[in-house]
Write a protein that binds this DNA or RNA. Structure first.
Length: 259
DNA sequence: ATGGCGGCTCGCAGCCGA
């Protein structure tokens, strides 16, 4: 069994000790990070290389930023969405042992009446086109990250309260279905899951302890990978303890995929 | 209860996140 995982770390500067601790304990084959909030010149490269992992990253000041850590060599690195000029660093793709990995930090969207929401929908249009193109080139494809979309009401702690708001609105969910329509599967839904499993909880008002969360971090896999996928879980422990990110780690377990 | 927390910034309050 080996693991492919995704984690919105909400600042790699702050979360580096927790990331190092987590990879030492879990030894994932691949870990995709979002919201590193770290310029490339400040990326903690040596600390990560010392773990034996290789890493590619695309960051910027203050916001956004993505990285891919891998125990195996990282090849064919690509930054951004083709045909969508964007200063915001939200997309990083790489090939690991013939498996194409696309790390997405989908825009938040703020609220449906905001310019940021329009940016999110436009971004998602180009993301779907990109995944379609990549899938044609790489049958073994994993698209993972912070999608900032709760695909269904069962991914929302209180669907009535959240109805129509950002992260759950119809157009956002339609875009998510557009990704699945390319032939990708939500790895989490390949398996029986208990109710009310989420990947993000607000820092405020004790949301985590009341399990007021959303499932917005996802691992999508192509048909060629479905038969080797053995599990998909969310590590709630990563939301506990000292200085946690507001997102937990999502992990897909595979066999017969990467050596 | 639109706050609440936490991270960011040439900060000392305001932004953004989700």
């Amino acid at each position: 069994m080996f693991k492919i995982a995704t984690w919105n770390v909400n600042s790699l500067k702050v979360r580096l000790p927790r990331v190092l601790e987590w990879i030492d304990k879990n030894k994932p084959a691949v870990l995709a990070l979002q919201e590193t909030k770290t310029q490339d010149k400040d990326f903690p490269l040596s600390a990560i290389l010392e773990t034996g992992y290789q890493v590619s990253y695309a960051g910027q000041k203050t916001f956004n930023g993505v990285a891919i850590l891998s125990r195996h060599s990282i090849e064919e690195v690509s930054v951004g969405l083709p045909g969508f000029a964007d200063e915001q660093q939200r997309v990083l793709a790489a090939t690991v042992d013939g498996v194409r990995i696309i790390d997405f930090y989908v825009p938040n969207g703020q609220s449906p009446d905001s310019d940021k929401y329009q940016y999110k929908l436009k971004w998602l249009e180009h993301a779907v086109a990109y995944v379609r193109q990549q899938l044609a080139l790489y049958p073994k494809l994993v698209v993972l990250g912070d999608f900032n979309i709760a695909p269904e009401d069962r991914d929302v702690h209180d669907p009535i309260k959240w109805e129509g708001s950002v992260l759950v609105s119809g157009p956002e969910r339609a875009a998510f279905q557009g990704l699945l329509g390319l032939g990708l599967k939500d790895a989490f839904r390949l398996f029986d899951q208990p109710p009310a499993v989420f990947s993000w909880w607000d820092y405020r008002a004790g949301a985590f302890h009341r399990n007021f969360g959303l499932r917005i971090d996802h691992i999508l896999i192509s048909e060629a990978l479905v038969s080797s996928c053995r599990s998909c879980t969310i590590d709630r422990d990563t939301r506990k303890g000292t200085q946690p990110s507001d997102h937990a780690v999502v992990i897909a377990g595979f066999n017969d995929l990467i050596a």
